[in-house]
Every structure is written in structure tokens, then in C-alpha cells.
């Protein structure tokens, strides 16, 4: 649905700023119906990238294909037409203060060239959909941040787009409202089949709504993949960022067992099966689990007696179940399993 090929964008040097290469060859594929997250440090080029998707920013070189149309090749008038297929929402909502909530949605209908007599019905229908019909006559200044973003979403949906772009749309909202808006975005994705490309700096947002994710740094893609696949990469920045369990500190004589669930059946009742099979006592040290597509995906860190874990063959059994397991042991109690994976070395830090 969205296909970016080798995008480059450089801002020439000016009197007040040196030249910047904001994008240095970014390629990205987002399949239809997918929610794709883009994360990265400030200045990584995330905003520049999404602004290139609807050509608010024209890339210096490279190709942008959305819904089968090469936008980079279109003349201005056709491009305007194509933009109506691409909704966009913003961190600061960008609603007109001079228009009511309904007026703001109608702006989109006017710009899309819908016949005037259909404006009222359609705008109310859209507001109904985002749950704001009763505030139709309020002005944006009278709404909360979450409500403003709902208006922004209604406006973005006005022309029945196939794609929704979101640049930090929840960054100005509190956690509860963020969850609300993310829920709405997920709903749009499921009910309308909307393909979503969203920028965020909160890994939690990616975990909650994204199917796939791209990590950018200095105008380049450094990691990319489906969420549960990214998770299986040990020690990658993305998997650590997404499923961060915090620092590991095994107590004396205790071992930490980090199990990664990357979807599939393997995670079914794994803890109780493990306990039964080996007659071991575990306590949960930390966990970061998300339900993606109906299956548990994430990491859990268990704490158990180092001696028991070593003696029982727990690790082998877990690996046989197809799980990714890492063992961390305290320094005074070297792991017998050391040969089994580089990760065990990290136990030395504990």
C-alpha cells in the first residue's frame, strides 16, 4: 500500500543553518491493512519521512508509491487528488480555531470537492464515528486534547482515505487519552481496513498498535520488521526498546531466566508446564507482554535457584518448545550453561 524506495532528502545549507541530509536512502514497504510504526531519536528524520509520503515535502530523490500510484511522478493537480487518499493527523491537531468542530470536518469535504448539500450529513456521520457528534458546534478551543485529536481524525477520514499518516499524534496527550486514541486508530484499521503509518517516540505505542516497525537513526533505517519477528532478535535495539524488562539483578544463588514469546503456540501455559515438569519454584521478576493478533508476544523474566535451573535441564526443554531463552547468573555462581549462549556472559554484570 505504501512503498518508499531509496528516499533521500537534503536541506541545503542556508545563512542560518548548515546543510542537513535528513533522509539518506530510506526504503519501506507497508502492506495494506497494516499498522507500521516508525521510531527513532529526535532528528532521525521521522517527520521528514512521513511528510514525504504525501509529498508535503518533496524528496530530493527516490520514489513514493501509495496505493499503486507513483506520487513523485504526478503533476501538482493530480497530486492534490491523490492526497485525498492519504489522511494525516498531527501532534498539535492543527484544527482551525475559526471554525467549529463540524466546520473543521467540513473543511476537508470542501477541499475534497464534495457537493455542498452533502456536507452536513457527512460531517455529522464522521463526528458520530469518532464519538463527538454532540460537540459539533463547539469550537476547538473548548475541547480537551483527546477530543481535538478525534476531530483531527474525523477530518482526516473525510475523503475516505486508504492510508492514515500520524506524526506523534498522541505525544501531547496523557496516558489514558493516548490509549483512547490508539484504540480508535486500531478500530479504524480493523473496521475500515485503513493502512496506518505512525511516528512515535513511545515504544509503548508501537507495542500497543503496530504490526511492524522501523527504527531510524541519522536518516537511515537501522532495523525493520514485524513486531514478533523483531522480538526474536536478541539484543537488537528494537527488541530491547519494545520489551524492556529493566536491569537484571540476580540475587545470590539465584538465576534469571529470560523467555521470549514470539507468537505461536509455544507460549501456551508455559509457566505452569515448566513448574510442573521440573518441580521448580519460580518467581516472576519482570514481564513485558502484549497480545498481538490474539497471541502473547513479549518477554518474561523468571527468578529461580541457580543450582536447580542448572541441574534440571530447564533451558534445553524451553528451547525445545521453540522459545528463545537467555540465562543470567550471578558472578559468584558461574553458569554451567555458559557455552550455550553468549547472553550468559551478561550475568557477570548482575
Amino acid at each position: 500500500m505504501i512503498s518508499l524506495h531509496d528516499l533521500r532528502k537534503s536541506y541545503p545549507a542556508t545563512a542560518s543553518s548548515p546543510g542537513v541530509e535528513a533522509l539518506r536512502g530510506v526504503s519501506l514497504e507497508v502492506a495494506e491493512g497494516e499498522v507500521h510504526g516508525i521510531v527513532g531519536e529526535s532528528g532521525a528524520g521521522k517527520s521528514t519521512l512521513v511528510r514525504c509520503v504525501n509529498l508535503l515535502e518533496r524528496p530530493t530523490s527516490g520514489q513514493v508509491v501509495v496505493n499503486g500510484i507513483d506520487l513523485t511522478a504526478l503533476p501538482e493537480s493530480r497530486l492534490r487528488q491523490a492526497r485525498r487518499n492519504i489522511g494525516m493527523i498531527f501532534q498539535h491537531f492543527n484544527l482551525l480555531s475559526s471554525r467549529t468542530v463540524q466546520g473543521n470536518v467540513e473543511l476537508a469535504l470542501e477541499l475534497a470537492g464534495l457537493p455542498r448539500r452533502e456536507h452536513k450529513g457527512r460531517s455529522l456521520e464522521l463526528l458520530e464515528y469518532v464519538g463527538l457528534a454532540e460537540r459539533a458546534r463547539s469550537f476547538p478551543s473548548q475541547l480537551s486534547g483527546g477530543q481535538k485529536q478525534r476531530v483531527g481524525i474525523a477530518r482526516a477520514l473525510a475523503a475516505n482515505p486508504k492510508v492514515l499518516l500520524s506524526d506523534e499524534a498522541t505525544s501531547a496527550l496523557d496516558p489514558a487519552t493516548t490509549a483512547d486514541i490508539l484504540g480508535l486508530i486500531r478500530q479504524l484499521n480493523r473496521q475500515l481496513g485503513l493502512t496506518v503509518l505512525l511516528i512515535t517516540h513511545q515504544m509503548e505505542v508501537v507495542r500497543k498498535v503496530c504490526d511492524s516497525v522501523t527504527l531510524m537513526r541519522d536518516g537511515l533505517v537501522v532495523e525493520q520488521g514485524d513486531l514478533n519477528e523483531v522480538l526474536t532478535r536478541p539484543d537488537s535495539d528494537l527488541s530491547n526498546g519494545l520489551f524492556d524488562l529493566g536491569p537484571q539483578e540476580a540475587g545470590a544463588g539465584l538465576a534469571l531466566l529470560e523467555i521470549t514469546f514470539a507468537g505461536g503456540n509455544s507460549s501456551q501455559h508455559i509457566i505452569s508446564r515448566l513448574a510442573r515438569q521440573f518441580d521448580l519454584d519460580f518467581s516472576i521478576d519482570a514481564a513485558a507482554i502484549e497480545v498481538i493478533g490474539g497471541v502473547n508476544v513479549g518477554r518474561i523474566r523468571l527468578e529461580a535457584s541457580a543450582r536447580d535451573v542448572a541441574a534440571s535441564g530447564t533451558l534445553d526443554w524451553l528451547r525445545q518448545q521453540g522459545l528463545i531463552v537467555r540465562l543470567f547468573t550471578p558472578p559468584d555462581d558461574p553458569a554451567p550453561d555458559r557455552s550455550d549462549g553468549g547472553a550468559a556472559d551478561e550475568g557477570g554484570r548482575a
Binding site: 508535503l56 493537480s77 494525516m88 498531527f90 492543527n94 477541499l111 475523503a159
Partner: peptide, 19 residues
């Protein structure tokens, strides 16, 4: 940002000015 929003909705230069 308002100009940006209007352009993302397919607004032309003139409609951005007027609307």
C-alpha cells in the same frame, strides 16, 4: 501546521489562502 493540514487534505494554494 494549519497550512500543512489543509495541504494534506488536498487543498490547493488558493484555497489555503481563502479557507
Amino acid at each position: 501546521g494549519l497550512i500543512e493540514a489543509a495541504r494534506s487534505l488536498g487543498g490547493g494554494r488558493l484555497s489555503v489562502c481563502v479557507k
